[in-house]
Design a protein around this nucleic acid. Structure first.
Lengths: 201, 201, 201, 201
DNA sequence: GATGAATGAGGTTTCATTCAT
DNA sequence: GATGAATGAAACCTCATTCAT
């Protein structure tokens, strides 16, 4: 990718996150990227295809990272912790990607939307499998697993909307925090883990 | 409000929630409301003023309900529980309102945006006051109160994106669930409350 | 149709005939019709749909007139003469319609093109049936009927490109001329018709 | 001309004939010619200059061939037959050239249009001179010579729109056909020519 | 109260063309 | 000789809005 191509994608990411897909004009995009609006079309197909590219890249990266997270262990609790840490870190460090991914699915028309939704489902499927394994093993507990999964994801995704890297919390600290919270949410008894350290949620 | 006026607001709420403010055209609005696009202007000022009205109504109701929730008790823990129950119930039962309120603030231009942000801040201020009181009293505990407040709100607001009234969970059950979760998030020792019942989060 | 709608169609007909469909801009169209380019869209779908409407109307009229012409007699020679007179008259008096119909079929995209081609084929089918009947009866003669049909049509259609109503020839005279010519082209022996008058082609 | 230059001209001829000058984009041209759109500009001036070149070449060839046809004899009837045979052969064997020449004159801007029209007029002038000589000699007869000339030309040019070299008719046969037809059109008494053979038109 | 007609501004995209490499 | 990158102008079309009826 040429520097200009990178600038175009960066501009799109910023503007789609700030103002939404429909709220972003092609001319604003061009201005932010530092090219003419006609030149934009060397680096993208249509505005929508640009959105699809951004979403697809972001989701594919998330899926790959999730697969890697799951692969670190065969213990559902450890897998869940790894997923949460990865998810929170991703959302805190790349909030633009995730905000666009979360808010602009409705802006896509078929068949692009179906493709993106498929990717997102694949990602959530990984969480579901880990949760299901943990619930079957009895190391995780929940009255409403489906609800718990969504609540957990919403909570973790929320960091993209407020986390400030210049704030008092490091990415590492944030990930720790949320991993512990996830365990509580799913009934993992804390004392038996990590030498019983006093983890304040 | 005449029936048509109600239909216009309902249509706007649905479409702004579905497709976003910028993604909704005045003609779609008219069609959904069952009037001509010219007639729309008997029931609203501009498209943006319609959005402002929807947001303002929704937020004012939320603020009023929050004030009522806080007034039910002078105990910070009870107040927090009441806030959570109210917030979750509102988001689960009126997801369109809250989705519009959460996503479309950026679509407003000044000075409308400032007004809406002021209302939202007033709402969050109520949470902050309850949390601050609880933390000072020592009945709530948190390493990072600001983080905890936002994480809690994100988690609770999330229900607007997934709660299904036809699903297995009642609004009541959902509110119970989240009230308990909020307590855990803020270090309220469960055994001392409600006769030590085993509340599964 | 409102006066403005008529002006829009007239403008389109003139410009599409003069400069071609692709050579005519929406702004020229608007200017010629005396409306703004945005107002144009009250009277048409897209530019292409306007072209389709013009072509369809013109062809349907031609087909109807051809059916009427054929219905005037059961004698193939008389039918052919009626067809030629009608065709020549139509092309001489409405040259814009026929020029657009002849030149701009390629500008259409599917499925509109197929519809228009179907109409045109239906029209030519009428000629073919008359010719076939005449050939079978032996009152018409041709070495290459298919060639004769196309040559005849081309010759008759050509008047749209040069006939001048202010010139020395009346529409009536023109039609006479071409009817006689068609008879010669198809081997009708002139002496037996119209009392053997000296018809100069 | 280099092979690439030939390919460019061939591509332009095909596309201008298929889709018209305004309907053909520079990028389609490049693709059909197998070069980049920038490279196109090594082989042409502007798109319009390319059209002018194609038309000029085609018309100059036509003029030269017409002059040669006229030079074959001093008998107006023979000259007319030679012109018709040449014109029909040209239109049947090079339909792209003639279609572009016939349809795209309007696409030219001045002064190019004037040049092309001058060439076309020079061509038609040759026909007119032959017809005038024949009429004066009394070997050709027509009520409306101007009409006859245009009708004759339209009829002959029409072959470019339908002649199929793979069809039943050879170029030679086609030329014979049209030469005989032209004679009839202009009142040449057939019996006195070619030993009175029964020429079926 | 209701709407068809109208429009200036702006939407996204494509145009023919140039130029540095 | 060839081309990727770039662009001003213009393409078609839709926008939110107004107004006479």
């Amino acid at each position: 990718m040429t520097p200009t191509a990178v600038r175009v994608r960066r501009a799109a990411l910023e503007l789609f996150a700030e103002r939404g897909f429909h709220g972003t004009g092609i001319r604003q995009l061009a201005e932010r990227a530092g090219v003419s609006s006609a030149s934009l079309y060397h680096y993208m197909g249509t505005k929508e295809e640009l959105l699809v590219a951004l979403m697809t890249d972001s989701l594919e990266r998330l899926v790959a990272d999730a697969q890697a997270a799951v692969a670190t262990s065969s213990d559902p609790v450890s897998q869940l912790e790894a997923l949460v840490r990865m998810h929170v870190t991703a959302h805190a460090s790349r909030p633009l990607d995730t905000r666009v991914g979360d808010h602009e699915v409705e802006a896509l028309s078929e068949p692009a939307r179906a493709q993106v939704v498929t990717l997102r489902d694949r990602y959530e499927q990984l969480w579901q499998e880990v949760l299901a394994a943990g619930l079957e093993d009895g190391v995780l507990r929940s009255e409403h697993p489906a609800v718990a999964r969504r609540a957990l994801l919403e909570m973790c995704s929320g960091v993209a909307r407020w986390f400030d890297p210049a704030g008092p919390l490091t990415l590492e600290g944030l990930a720790d925090h949320y991993a512990a919270l996830a365990c509580r949410l799913l009934g993992v008894s804390p004392p038996t883990r990590r030498g019983g350290a006093d983890i304040c949620v």
